[in-house]
Amino acid sequence: MKITPKQYATGLFQAIRNKQASETATIIDSFVAMLAKNNDIVKVDKIIAAFSALWNTEHGIITSEITATKDLDKETRDAIRAFVLRTSGASVVEESEKIDGTLLGGTVIRYEDTVMDYSIKTKISDLISAIKK
């Protein structure tokens, strides 16, 4: 029977749950050996992706991306992080930042499959279409 990457990832995740770092290393070694035996080494990218998704949902981790016109100061960043944590209900946020001058101002916050567009650019274009009506 074929084993899907998701099944591999779930198996690995359950095997290393609540284990010490030393134990984990042996588990991973034998996991890789099993992959080789099953001729499934090519699936490793997909397994890693599935594993990290699984890890994130189990631990309440989400990834977010904040786009702004310039580098954010610490205060704003903390405020945004608190806001994301509150709206998403997650416990940890892994953040990344992007700078995009065309936004004109404000920020676009993106986590998981949610986008919150607080940019001036969108507000202006909304206003334009409202006036056109």
Binding site: R110, D113, T114, V115, M116, D117, Y118, T122, K123, D126, L127, A130, I131
Partner: peptide, 19 residues
């Protein structure tokens, strides 16, 4: 008139679901 209609304009909910 322009001022009033701009003031009355409410921006749409900025939260979007994407895929």
């Amino acid at each position: 008139q322009i001022k009033r209609s701009i003031a009355a304009h409410e921006t749409s909910a900025p939260v979007k679901n994407v895929g």
